[in-house]
């Protein structure tokens, strides 16, 4: 296999994630994670509740430190990036954050430019162009002057994604972007993410519980089970029968033919 070094935008080796609190022994959520992720992919992280999906995202985002192992971005250790450098490399979308809903859509999306602006946060023509592009890509141009408290959950989700787009980073990490949405809006958010990943060559990782949607729409999936963490294309994962290891087999089984879970 031929490798272009710069194509590995994220790679993790022997990664252990969890929480450490000074003197107490660390709580390991997941360990022995090896990932090598190439550019321009939409990647879903799936696994049952409490398996460490959010912890993995938070660790990749640098919000918490890994307990063990290394994370490299573009073949440079994540620790070697300054906070500001990291901010131009990866952006995040959180669902349950304490975001002020009194901001207009435009104001919230514009905040994505913060890593690039001066101490007053003044926006250059280039900044404005990028903000405009982000609003258009997420179909928010029409409602850019609305306040966020006037928006539906689906629209709000698009606003957060637009903010991440405005931050203009090669990597975007999203924590459960499809919760609280109906099937139509779940599918449209994921479709939007796929378009962004392919058109703008961005690497987009998101955690989700929508496994059947993810199988249809993502390029690759990271499956987290208590034993291992595997990363492959949905087709290969189905072939390898990985989805059956997600939940107790005597209760929920995965049907390879239909690509769906059934309850016994």
């Amino acid at each position: 296999m031929q490798h272009h070094i710069s194509e590995h935008i994220i790679s993790a080796k022997n990664l252990s994630i969890g929480y450490s609190n000074g003197k107490k022994p660390a709580i390991i959520v997941a360990k022995d994670i090896d990932l090598s992720i190439t550019k321009g992919q939409l990647i879903a992280i799936v696994g049952s509740n409490g398996i460490g999906k959010s912890t993995l995202l938070r660790t990749l985002a640098g919000i918490q430190s890994p307990l063990n192992g290394t994370i490299d971005f573009l073949d440079k250790p994540s620790k070697s990036y300054s906070p500001l450098e990291l901010a131009s490399l990866l952006s995040i979308v959180l669902t349950e954050a304490a975001v002020s809903k009194n901001l207009t859509v435009l104001e919230l999306v514009s905040l994505g430019r913060q890593p690039y602006t001066n101490w007053m946060g003044s926006l250059s023509n280039n900044d404005n162009a990028i903000i405009l592009e982000a609003l258009e890509a997420t179909q928010l141009s029409e409602i850019q002057h609305k306040k966020c408290f006037e928006l539906s959950d689906g629209q709000l989700q698009r606003v957060y994604i637009a903010r991440a787009l405005a931050q203009d980073t090669p990597i975007i990490l999203l924590d459960e972007p499809t919760t609280h949405l109906d099937l139509f809006h779940k599918a449209s958010i994921l479709k939007l993410l796929k378009t962004i990943a392919h058109k703008k060559q961005k690497t987009i990782l998101f955690s989700t519980h929508e496994i059947d949607l993810a199988i249809q729409l993502t390029d690759t999936m990271i499956i987290m089970t208590p034993e291992t963490t595997v990363h492959n294309t949905p087709c290969r994962l189905i072939e390898q029968n990985v989805f059956n290891t997600l939940f107790p087999e005597d209760f929920i089984v995965f049907d390879k033919m239909t690509g769906r879970f059934t309850i016994k």
Partner: peptide
């Protein structure tokens, strides 16, 4: 006034603010 940009970022909560390179 010196903290105004940081305050704007904090409107999104601490985690977002941090993710945008705020110290």
């Amino acid at each position: 006034i010196l903290s105004a940009k940081a305050l704007n970022a904090l409107l999104l909560g601490e985690q977002y603010a941090k993710s945008m390179g705020l110290k």
